[in-house]
Every structure is written in structure tokens, then in C-alpha cells.
């Protein structure tokens, strides 16, 4: 029993994948959904392999992933910069808060038509849509975290002669960084969604556009293969954020993980 549990713990990732495969295959074989729309796992893997060998999927994936990554970096930097500005000026903070309250509930897809009219089809459109939906979690977490820094920490900085800006850079920002990263992590997911949606609605390349084409061509196994690829991209993007987070705020993660 114990050995079985240990085995399950050790191989939990492949086991979960196997479970998903199994359920998928069972649904496929049960014939609940017409076969045309719900291909078997071997068909999906085969479709992926085909797209991989003709090279189309690689170019599309690199395009999409870079868009999501660059968009995330830009949005996170902008979010942190805005959080710092808001911290310096309460008036600006209130202003940005209104804007974010209005813009935040709008789904990325709703921005795309407007962006097409304003910016045309191209890089500017992606930048606009991604940043507009991705900037808020790092910004909002940044504002809250900067406000929440303990007055004792600030007074400690003042006692050792730090100026206001030195306190911001050397005390308050490092203290706020763990919570900012929680926002960036969330933003990573949104960034990928925004890219795929923009590519589907207004794109000429990338995975989103590819999915769109395949849907119209009724290539369901290709569509599913691409969806799995998107899922993997999400995991990869989160992994990159986690790496940076560990490098910059590793102390916080170890502090939280330590046994009491």
C-alpha cells in the first residue's frame, strides 16, 4: 500500500496524463460525441506530428509564445512603473484606479475589434490588447503591497539615513516584490489568452490563427493538438515566471516554506 502511494507520488505527472488519455479514449470509444468532432488520442498525436514535420507549427508557436512573453514583460514593467508612480502621487493613483475599474472587467476579445479599427492588423494591435488586459494584476498588487510595507521597515531605513527614493528602491520595493510576483504569475496566464484571442480574431499568423483556420477546415484532430500545445505553452510561461521569481524573491519562498 505504502509502496503504491510512493509510486503514485513519484510519477504523479505521467500518471495524471495517463488518466486524461484514458478518459479521453473512453469518451471517444463510447461514441457520445460524433467521431468527427472528437478524434481519438492517437489521431491527435498523429496530427501534431504531421504539423511538426512540415514545420508550420514551429513558426506559429514561436510567434505566439514570443508575443505572450514580450507582452508579459512589457505589461509587468509598465504595471510596476505605474504602481510606483501611484505610490508617489495619490491623485494619479485615484485616476488610474478609475481607469482600471472600467477596463478590467472587459474581456480581451472585446478589445480586438476596436484595436483593428484604431491600429490595423499588426504588432501594434497585439501590444495594445495584451498590455491593456495584462497590466492590471502586477499594478494592483504593486499598489497594495507598497502601501502595506511595515512602518517599522520604513523607519529602519530612515534611521540609517536613506532618502525617500532610497527607501522606495532599497526597502519598500524589495518588500513588495513577492506580492507583485503573485500578480505577474496571474498576468502570465492572461497574456497567453489575450495573444491567442487576438490571433484568432484579427491575426495572420500564430497558433491562434492556425486554430481558427483548422476549425474552418473541420480538422478537429489538428485543433485539439494545437490546444494541447497552448496548454503546454502556458505551463512553460508560468515556469519562466517561477524561475525569475525564485531568483529575485527566493528568500520569501524559503521563508514561507520553512517548517515552524
Amino acid at each position: 500500500m505504502n509502496a503504491a502511494l510512493q509510486f503514485a507520488e513519484r510519477f504523479r505527472v505521467p500518471l495524471c496524463l495517463l488518466l486524461v488519455f484514458g478518459i479521453w479514449q473512453a469518451v471517444h470509444l463510447a461514441g457520445v460525441v460524433p467521431e468527427k468532432f472528437f478524434p481519438s488520442m492517437p489521431e491527435i498525436v498523429g496530427a501534431f506530428w504531421r504539423m511538426l514535420s512540415d514545420g508550420t507549427v514551429i513558426t506559429a508557436w514561436v510567434t505566439t509564445f514570443l508575443r505572450a512573453l514580450i507582452g508579459l514583460i512589457a505589461a509587468a514593467s509598465l504595471g510596476i512603473a505605474l504602481a510606483i508612480l501611484s505610490d508617489l502621487s495619490p491623485v494619479l493613483s485615484r485616476g488610474i484606479r478609475y481607469v482600471s475599474d472600467i477596463l478590467q472587467p472587459i474581456p480581451p476579445a472585446a478589445f480586438v475589434p476596436m484595436a483593428v479599427f484604431m491600429l490595423g492588423l499588426g504588432t501594434k494591435l497585439y501590444a495594445f490588447v495584451i498590455i491593456l488586459v495584462t497590466v492590471w494584476p502586477p499594478y494592483l498588487n504593486g499598489v497594495t503591497a507598497l502601501q502595506a510595507v511595515s512602518p517599522v521597515q520604513v523607519n529602519t531605513g530612515r534611521m540609517f539615513g536613506l532618502s525617500r527614493s532610497q527607501i522606495l528602491w532599497q526597502v519598500r520595493l524589495p518588500a513588495a516584490l513577492p506580492e507583485i510576483f503573485t500578480g505577474i504569475r496571474y498576468a502570465a496566464t492572461i497574456s497567453l489568452i489575450a495573444v491567442i484571442v487576438s490571433e484568432m480574431l484579427a491575426g495572420r499568423d500564430g497558433i491562434g490563427f492556425m486554430i481558427y483556420k483548422k476549425v474552418y477546415a473541420m480538422r478537429s484532430s489538428d485543433v485539439f493538438a494545437l490546444m494541447f500545445l497552448v496548454a503546454c505553452s502556458g505551463v512553460l510561461l508560468n515556469g519562466l515566471v517561477a524561475l525569475l521569481r525564485r531568483a529575485l524573491t527566493g528568500w520569501h519562498m524559503r521563508m514561507m516554506e520553512r517548517p515552524e
Binding site: 511595515s150 517599522v152 521597515q153 523607519n155 534611521m159 524589495p174 524573491t249 528568500w251 520569501h252
Partner: peptide, 19 residues
């Protein structure tokens, strides 16, 4: 806060920078 004067705060866990 002048040079030559140090405060030791009650709340040491916040006064020390955890990073």
C-alpha cells in the same frame, strides 16, 4: 535621524530586512 543615534525597535522581525 542623526548619525550616532540608533533605535532598536520592539518589532525586530520587521525591523530586520528579511531579504
Amino acid at each position: 535621524p542623526p548619525i550616532g543615534l540608533s533605535v532598536v525597535f520592539q518589532d525586530y522581525s520587521r525591523s530586520l530586512l528579511p531579504w
